[in-house]
Design a protein around this nucleic acid. Structure first.
Length: 607
DNA sequence: AAGCGGAGCGCC
DNA sequence: AAAAGGCGCTCCGCTT
């Protein structure tokens, strides 16, 4: 049977003053709220010239009932919102979900500054979007409802226009993956355990308040850079400054990794602790927002297709209590995420996936050989550095080796490496040691710097009009200002040009203004490694669901989450390991490895 | 009062 | 420059 394509857009009651709106609360809380009330829906099929408007409870029910959802692809702009309403309020399960906002990110990338309906419509030369607000209007008058209908129909037509313009530029094989990111949200399978969140937040609050109280200072003084600096000066403590990378002005060096704060930590630990405690942290704010979601039902997993527009990795969304990609490791946040009754979470992790990709791209035998023989690359590098045999038992030394192996593959310099070691390992190393580590890495794995050089040599080719493939990655094609990945998705370097002896391209960092950004060999390789890792993970999810019938419920870069009945969890572990280890058709040589575990919660499932 | 930019920090 | 990068979230402080 032919699938029909249906464009939709809901108009619903919101009240920003009453705290009931999408700026105020997450999509999940909004749609599940008792105040939720649809004004109506705009819709249009792909083969229709004009959009339609349906309002009124009975008419809406009749419309929903009239659609053959199982054979309909539903398209909307930010479809997680419209899909959540259809799925959670009307029990709709369509053939496929498509999001024109994600389509914009995937197909246009950095070429636009915003992926709002208005911005994409303007960029693509579609008719202007209407202007209308009905903030706080619970019962629109007949005239208001008619105006809302006209406004909504225009949005539906714009959504269809965006789809028609961008779909030809979007690789068909990626449609299923886009659908998966939306299903992970609108068909949630995970739970959030309320009391775990309550206890975690409470503990964190008490810890912070105690630290602030112990200092005897006002929280506002501690939290403000200016006031805190003045307070330190009044105590006769020197306030070190640093130069802002963005503004070029001197600012107080108050970051955790700044030396000035480290000095304070040693000289006045109480004041240091209070300063840190004065800032809200992720643990507490995220715990609170997840708790609000937990009270409404299951946990929708929000990742955005091509959210990382440069590499097409998934980004974390804010639709259900905040970005699930940065839940603090070994924290109560991950303890709170669990499989439903009678089920287990199966979690798989690609082992050192970017390192493997780098090793095979560089064709570096010192890495490839060790990886194939299951030798511990981190210990091996640490052994070279410390000039003695380091094993997994030498925790700090091996951690140092890991930090170097994972960090130095893209050209990192000494200062940055020193800061990274301090930040991740809480380890102080000298300038000399940092420099020595970098030199050791680059001489030991000399094919890696050679790869950066190959990449640097390719940059002029990317900027030219010539069509080619990368000789070190033949499955990646070179196009004008772009690289085409095996999936067909494109890494873009808009307006790539030489400025002096550097290469730059334009990135929208600010909202309305693009900014030249440098491109060099190491960075190009990093973009490629991240992008390929993302593609491998997507392919594994595809195999797991279609071949192994293991329903995947979430993804964090190199990690896949699935939910299975506990009786079948062990079988799913095997399936996941196999699905993740299978090399892709376009790169049969690479050797992948995964670590898979299962348990009742995210924390327990992950080894 | 609301919006924006800068800075810092969580994850991979 | 043989220069790690990709994100989202939060707060402060300034502008509008």
């Amino acid at each position: 049977m032919n699938k029909r394509v249906l464009f939709v857009d809901w108009e619903t009651f919101f009240d920003s003053k009453g705290g009931y709106g999408l700026k105020e609360i997450s999509v999940t809380e909004y749609v599940r709220d008792s105040r939720f009330k649809p004004h109506g829906i705009g819709y249009q099929y792909l083969d229709q010239d004009k959009a339609h408007w349906v309002s009124g409870e009975h008419q809406l029910a009749a419309f929903i009932g009239s659609v053959d959802w199982a054979n309909t692809t539903v398209v909307a702009h930010n479809v997680k919102f419209d899909g959540a309403i259809l799925a959670w309020r009307y029990g709709v399960k369509p053939y496929l979900w498509v999001d024109t906002q994600a389509l914009g990110k995937a197909a246009l990338g950095e070429q636009v500054s915003s992926y709002s309906l208005r911005s994409l419509a303007t960029y693509l030369g579609l008719p202007p979007k209407g202007e209308l607000t009905c903030d706080g209007v619970l019962e629109p008058s007949a005239q208001q409802l008619a105006e809302l209908g006209e406004y909504c129909k225009r949005d539906v037509e714009l959504c269809k226009g965006i789809y028609e313009k961008l779909m030809p530029q979007f690789p068909q094989n990626q449609i299923w993956h886009m659908d998966w990111t939306i299903r992970a949200f609108v068909e949630p399978r995970l739970s959030l355990t309320e009391n775990v969140l309550v206890a975690g937040v409470q503990k964190e609050k008490e810890r912070r308040e105690a630290a602030i109280k112990a200092s005897g200072l006002d929280k506002r003084v501690l939290a403000s850079n200016q006031q805190f600096a003045r307070h330190l000066q009044s105590l006769g403590i020197e306030v070190r400054t640093k130069i802002s990378g963005r503004t070029g002005k001197a600012i107080p060096a108050f970051a955790k990794t700044d030396e000035g704060l480290a000095v304070l930590q040693r000289s006045n630990p109480c004041l240091y602790a209070a300063r840190i405690a004065s800032k809200a942290n992720l643990l507490e704010t995220r715990g609170e927002s997840l708790l609000r979601v937990a009270r409404t039902g299951l946990f929708p997993f929000d990742v955005g297709f091509s959210g990382a527009v440069q590499t097409h990795r998934y980004s974390g969304g804010r639709g259900a209590g905040g970005n699930p990609q940065n839940f603090t490791r070994n924290s109560f946040l991950r303890d709170a995420v669990s499989a439903p009754e009678g089920h287990s979470l199966v979690v798989g992790d690609f082992a050192a996936i970017e390192l493997r990709i780098l090793a095979w791209l560089a064709n570096e035998p010192q890495l490839i050989h060790k990886i194939i023989n299951n030798e511990d690359v981190y210990s091996s590098f640490a052994s070279l550095f410390y000039k003695r045999t380091v094993t997994k038992a030498d925790l700090v030394e091996r951690q140092f080796g890991k930090c170097a192996i994972l960090g130095l593959g893209y050209g990192m310099g000494g200062d940055k490496f020193q800061a990274t070691v301090k930040n991740q390992l809480k380890l102080d190393i000298s300038d000399g040691d940092a420099y020595k580590t970098i030199r050791l890495y680059r001489t030991t794995y000399f094919n890696v710097p050679k790869l950066w050089q190959f990449a640097a040599n390719v940059i002029p080719l990317i900027a030219s009009d010539r069509i080619a493939s990368l000789h070190f990655a033949p499955f990646i094609k070179v196009r004008k200002n772009a690289l085409v990945l095996p999936s067909g998705l494109t890494i873009r370097y808009p307006n790539l040009r030489r400025v002096g002896d550097e290469w730059v391209y334009d990135v929208y960092r600010k909202k309305y203004e693009s900014e030249p950004t440098k491109l060099y060999g190491g960075k190009l390789i990093e973009n490629i490694c991240q992008a390929l890792a993302g593609e491998l993970c997507k392919e594994a999810i595809g195999r797991l669901e279609s071949e192994f019938k293991v329903p995947c419920v979430g993804q964090v870069h190199d990690e896949i989450l699935a939910v299975m009945p506990t009786a079948a969890a062990f079988v799913a572990v095997e399936a996941m390991a196999e699905a993740m280890q299978q090399p892709p058709k376009w790169w049969p040589q690479i050797r992948l490895k995964s670590e898979v575990g299962y348990g009742p919660t995210w924390s327990t499932a992950k080894k």
